[in-house]
Design a protein around this nucleic acid. Structure first.
Lengths: 126, 126
DNA sequence: TCCTATACTTACCTTTTTGTAAGTATGAAA
DNA sequence: TTTCATACTTACAAAAAGGTAAGTATAGGA
């Protein structure tokens, strides 16, 4: 596999380069949320459990820097900022879907059970 | 997205779970090498530029622990150990391929050039 | 005057991942 | 007796990633 420099960093493989765009704990969950529609900071925050303000901001900034998302600021108070996928970001969606499906397969094969939130009566399984 | 515990670790998403199997700098390059045939430690080492003994060992161990590869030891001196993909490991191959292709697309779109090793005359492009 | 909402920023710290350099065991061959 | 090959292990260090807790600006409303 080839290696190359980009933005002062050495990448060993195209895989590494791809993961610099969508890797880490939060980038894929964020991009995944944006595929449906434009989202505001707080909407993403509510949608993505456990993410902190700091991580959400930093990951949004990195995604923007890599051209995966757009950031649109409205000059209002309180602030309003909308995030949306760029074409490049949209290219990532099927990749993320593949990884997600693989994750679900693995979970299934491990026999891992996680609480389904399909119904309200979580504590009274049928 | 659901969250769940497995092996004393909390996973927030299936994506995170998938990446625990194939994520990091070295796991995908290793699995990719094994798709063609069984490989020995030193063969992998020669094939994967920049990987150190330590990282190769630790990643092979983790892949084994997750059931992605088999480790076969021959009782000879000097040692001989062969690594091969399990069925689970094979399931990862198309996923890795998708990520790799995405990486190549991104590289192309960025206009990044890397030295092709197709021909010997690297310094005399036709 | 104080509180609220929104989208952040900042300082500090912990954990995880990766890297560096050196050493180990063994039997066969020189 | 020394060297060689193979597949590691170990101690230590550096870098990257992630987390905690607190603070900021602003205008409108109570």
């Amino acid at each position: 596999m080839p290696e190359f420099f980009h933005d002062r960093k050495l990448y060993y493989t195209p895989i590494e380069f791809a993961l610099s765009h969508i890797g880490g704990t939060w980038k894929m969950p964020i991009l995944w949320r944006l595929q449906e529609s434009v989202q505001r900071f707080n909407e993403l925050k509510k949608d993505i459990p456990h993410i902190t303000d700091k991580m959400l901001t930093s990951q949004l900034r990195e995604l923007e820097a890599k051209g995966m998302i757009n950031r649109k600021v409205y000059a209002v108070v309180p602030p309003k900022v909308e995030y949306s996928l760029t074409d490049k970001g949209m290219q990532a969606i099927p990749v993320i879907e593949t990884i997600m499906k693989f994750g679900y397969e693995l979970i299934k094969e491990e026999g891992i059970e996680f609480p389904s939130k399909q119904h309200k009566n979580d504590d009274i399984p049928s």
